[in-house]
């Protein structure tokens, strides 16, 4: 579902990734652990195209979505509109000024999956951190992703909300998605992930 081979990336002469390999099967939940600067986030950002790798191969069998530590919803828009924006990649421009009815229906289904149907018309800025992160996951679902990359999805959340988000990610893996989550909490990683990959800090140049 996701295969990364020999990924290399450096920023201004500092090598962050030097031949990183990872493959994730459908239905598998992989946790990436490691100190700051070990390139965990960079791996995810290279997969979705937010960074261009210097070398190596990334193969995604389908559609990769990303969930961020800082969530990155448009706070002034409601949850439904934010989830609908996941569909932008398959909408032509002339249909994307106002989200079409079929996309809104699909987005409601995604909100139902994350348990937030009743908050569909609330502005995201008014939701709690945990609810916002679940809306962000619903946006990933609306993208029809089969790979979800989560960059420290629970670092900004309280323990209870963190558990909810982790269980949701686990359940999505159970549905057959490939899930990769960068985590800073080894105990969460051991509890929820099928496999834990530890990354070492590369020697600073």
């Amino acid at each position: 579902m996701l295969a990364i081979r020999g990924l290399r990336k450096s920023f201004g002469g500092r090598t962050v990734l030097d031949g990183f390999d990872l493959s994730v099967e459908p239905g598998e939940f992989v946790a990436l652990l490691g100190p700051n600067g070990s390139g965990k986030s960079t791996v995810l950002r290279c997969v979705v195209g937010l960074e261009t790798p210097d070398g190596g191969e990334v193969e995604v069998g389908g559609n990769a979505a990303m969930v961020f530590q800082k969530i990155h919803l448009v706070g002034r828009r409601n949850a439904l509109d934010n989830v609908c924006s996941g569909a932008l990649g398959r909408l032509p421009l002339h249909r994307s000024f106002f989200f079409p009815q079929d996309v809104r229906e699909e987005a409601m289904g995604c909100l139902e999956r994350v348990g937030l149907v009743d908050r569909a018309l609330d502005r995201c800025a008014r939701l709690s951190g945990g609810q916002q992160q679940r809306v962000a996951i619903a946006r990933a679902l609306c993208q029809r992703a089969n790979v979800i990359l989560a960059d420290e999805p629970v670092s900004a959340l309280d323990p209870q909300a963190a558990v909810q988000v982790m269980e949701l990610l686990k359940a999505l893996a159970g549905d057959g998605m490939a899930v990769v989550a960068v985590l800073h909490q080894p105990e969460l990683a051991r509890t929820y992930a099928d496999r834990v990959v530890e990354m070492k800090a590369t020697v600073a140049a």
Binding site: V48, G49, L50, N63, A64, A65, M66, F68, K70, I71, H72, L73, V74, D81, S85, G86, A87, L88, G89, R90, L91, L93, S96, F97, A136, R139, Q143
Partner: peptide
């Protein structure tokens, strides 16, 4: 952030402008 998030969904430049 929201710009990056919408970009990851495969949105084009005008769509990012419109929705992020």
């Amino acid at each position: 952030g929201p710009r990056d998030a919408v970009k990851v969904t495969g949105a084009s430049g005008p769509q990012i402008a419109l929705h992020a």
